[in-house]
């Protein structure tokens, strides 16, 4: 799973978001390191919707503009859980090795 996809799913795990809400939350979550461009966001949303990981939630009109919200599906929740577990295992492995390295480097 690519980082933008992981971040979009992580944002949606916090509740339904509309397009710009996802862009804003991804920037905040990654501490401004990742800025999703609309081309990237809607490519990902189109693909995630087709794969059944994300689905439209509701529509609202704010200041005359339509906002379509998206939410995580059960399959999306499962995919994110699997990816998070995989990353967690990698982080654990890295930390274990770094801890083992530390006494020798000091």
């Amino acid at each position: 799973m690519r980082e933008p996809t992981f971040l979009i799913l992580t944002v949606l795990a916090g509740g339904p978001r509309h397009g710009y809400g996802i862009v804003r939350d991804v920037a905040a979550l990654s501490e401004q390191r990742v800025t999703l461009r609309p081309g990237t966001l809607y490519t990902a949303l189109d693909r995630l919707t087709a794969e059944g990981l994300v689905e439209p939630d509701r529509e609202e009109t704010v200041d005359g503009r339509r906002r379509r919200y998206y939410r995580l599906t059960t399959a999306g929740h499962h995919a994110l859980t699997t990816e998070a577990a995989r990353m967690h295992q990698l982080v654990n492995a890295a930390e274990t090795r770094l801890r083992a390295l530390r006494p020798r480097t000091t």
Partner: peptide
């Protein structure tokens, strides 16, 4: 997707 994309552009 057009309306959605335009809304995201304008909000940004």
């Amino acid at each position: 997707w057009e309306d959605d994309m335009v809304a995201a552009f304008l909000e940004s």
